[in-house]
Amino acid sequence: MLGVFVNVATVLIGSLVGLLLKKGIPDKVTGALMSGIGLCTIYIGISGALNGENTLVLILSMAIGTIIGTLLDIDGQLNRLAAYVESKFKHEDGQVTVAEGFVTASLLFCVGAMTIVGSLQAGLTGDCEMLFTKATLDLISSCVLAASLGIGVMLSDIFVFVFQGGLVLLARVIAPFLTDYAIHEMTCAGSVLIIALGLNLIGVTKIKVANYLPVLLIPPILCMFM
């Protein structure tokens, strides 16, 4: 779990630095920075989506995951949980909510082969080198994201700990299911959600991305049969 703790610490430190820097940044610069982050998010999503090998897996995952997430109303529950914090820390211009910052950062930090493979390596062999590398990247990313998206980025540390920690602890159990094929399809599905986040950030759409989070869990199951 050492790699996970280091990654959690770097996200926390980067977020705190970003929040401190944000206080000295004019609102118009913050708005421009958020649009820039949105464009970069779209690029990251497109790059990851190209890892997919089977479009049918993506379509089925989106359909099944969307139904589950919508019925559970994950977006609504997340927004209700974040309401108290949001009332105190929400951007003055109301462009970004705590929940949106949380979901955006959580997906950016946890979707990708480096997260999955690094966590499995740490759990199976104790090798944390890949997680240390990821932690260094997340230190910089969390600083930039927090400066534009606010305290929701820091709260994503909870998701990073639970997601990566779960992968490490359950590595021996889930490793047989997370083949290269499954990891590619998970990355593809998650990256499509990241594209949606980017479109939200630049104001093109208002997609409730949190309701699509179950999509991430479907590809490994489908890949066992396809």
Results as ranks from 00 to 15, higher is better:
2 L>A: 14
2 L>W: 02
7 N>E: 04
10 T>L: 08
12 L>P: 04
13 I>S: 15
15 S>D: 10
16 L>A: 08
17 V>K: 06
21 L>H: 14
22 K>I: 04
22 K>H: 12
23 K>V: 02
25 I>A: 05
26 P>A: 11
29 V>P: 01
30 T>P: 00
30 T>W: 04
35 S>G: 13
35 S>Y: 12
41 T>A: 06
42 I>Y: 08
44 I>V: 13
45 G>F: 01
45 G>T: 03
47 S>I: 05
48 G>S: 06
50 L>C: 06
53 E>P: 01
59 I>T: 12
59 I>M: 10
63 A>W: 01
65 G>R: 06
66 T>P: 04
66 T>M: 12
67 I>G: 13
71 L>M: 09
73 D>F: 00
73 D>L: 02
75 D>K: 11
84 Y>T: 13
88 K>H: 14
89 F>D: 00
91 H>A: 13
96 V>W: 02
101 G>H: 03
103 V>M: 06
106 S>K: 15
108 L>I: 09
109 F>H: 11
109 F>T: 11
111 V>C: 00
111 V>G: 00
115 T>G: 03
115 T>I: 03
116 I>V: 11
118 G>S: 04
118 G>Y: 01
124 L>Q: 07
124 L>T: 10
125 T>H: 00
126 G>Q: 05
127 D>Q: 05
130 M>R: 02
133 T>A: 15
136 T>W: 13
139 L>C: 13
140 I>N: 00
148 S>G: 10
149 L>R: 12
155 L>G: 09
157 D>E: 15
162 V>G: 03
164 Q>L: 06
165 G>D: 03
166 G>W: 00
166 G>S: 05
170 L>E: 13
175 A>S: 09
175 A>M: 07
177 F>P: 03
178 L>T: 10
180 D>S: 15
195 I>P: 00
198 G>C: 01
199 L>K: 07
200 N>Q: 07
201 L>I: 07
208 K>H: 13
211 N>K: 01
212 Y>R: 14
216 L>C: 02
217 L>V: 10
224 M>G: 08
224 M>V: 14
226 M>S: 11
226 M>H: 09
226 M>N: 08
